[in-house]
């Protein structure tokens, strides 16, 4: 198949950037979207032009490196599919495809389709962990965890940190990313001692990074390649409310979900 690509090119953070047009010729429907871009890039290099920069690594939908707005949709048209796992059989021959980076103030463009997502790391650094040092942990089976809670925790922990939720949100809020981590840890007994403090610290960092507020539009849930449910945001809100009203008291006070 042959396609026309309209791609965002931007040399650096400070460069203005613009859309440029490329032809992608002889594309096989079995190629992944990124392999299609590889073909275009190989051709650009052969013509002594700089290839289109985009983040990628695992190409299996798990590392969260790739992230492209494809025709205005984060990761493109397939549900629950990252750009690296999207295959060209989902496009029509002759189609025009618009490819842009994630757009959010907290994710400045570094080059072309690559953005700076270090704000996500700082949100985790602010409290997205359980404070245990290595060594001295009790036996893994010492505290039984109901299967249901382990499953809920796992559903939320499946987040790959790609940033599609932010890119899809009209407010550029990172609430789904944040709530995924909060929900993961809040559903485990090990997460209880710091539960309240964790939420507070992570939300404060989220706001400091310049992400927008959540106004329950749920575009994030629709865009999430791992189908993290928006109910995690409900959990976040509940814990956050507790945190600000209880003034950061003991975490286990509302053990219901734990």
């Amino acid at each position: 198949m042959n396609l026309t690509l309209h791609v965002w090119r931007q040399k650096s953070r400070t460069d203005e950037g613009r859309m440029e047009t490329y032809l992608a010729k002889n594309i096989s429907p079995d190629m992944s979207f990124l392999e299609m871009l590889d073909v275009v890039n190989e051709d650009l290099i052969k013509h002594n032009k700089e290839p289109i920069a985009f983040d990628h690594d695992c190409r299996e939908g798990i590392c969260g490196s790739c992230g492209l707005m494809i025709n205005g949709v984060a990761h493109g048209p397939e549900k629950a599919t990252t750009a690296c796992q999207l295959h060209m059989r989902h496009f029509e021959d002759g189609a025009h495809i618009y490819i842009e980076p994630w757009r959010a103030a907290a994710f400045p463009v570094i080059r072309d389709l690559i953005v700076d997502r270090s704000a996500f790391d700082r949100i985790i650094q602010a409290g997205g962990y359980i404070s245990v040092n290595t060594g001295g942990a009790p036996d893994g089976n010492a505290i039984p965890i109901p299967k249901e809670n382990a499953e809920t925790a796992m559903d939320a922990a499946a987040c790959i940190g790609c940033g599609a939720c932010v890119a899809a949100c009209p407010n550029a809020s990172a609430m789904l990313f944040l709530s995924a981590k909060v929900t993961h840890l809040a559903n485990l007994p090990q997460g209880q001692p710091e539960r309240v403090q964790r939420v507070k610290k992570m939300v404060e960092q989220h706001d400091r990074e310049g992400f927008g507020h959540c106004t329950n539009i749920y575009e994030c849930e629709a865009a999430c390649p791992k189908e993290i449910p928006a109910t995690t945001i409900t959990q976040l809100n509940r814990d956050y409310l507790l945190a600000i009203t209880a003034g950061g008291g003991p975490g286990a006070r509302k053990g219901g979900a734990g």
Binding site: V132, G140, L188
Partner: peptide
């Protein structure tokens, strides 16, 4: 020890 450590960190192993 690895399993104990990971459980303490909140790794959601299958149950």
């Amino acid at each position: 020890n690895i399993i104990d450590q990971c459980v303490a960190q909140g790794v959601p192993f299958a149950r």
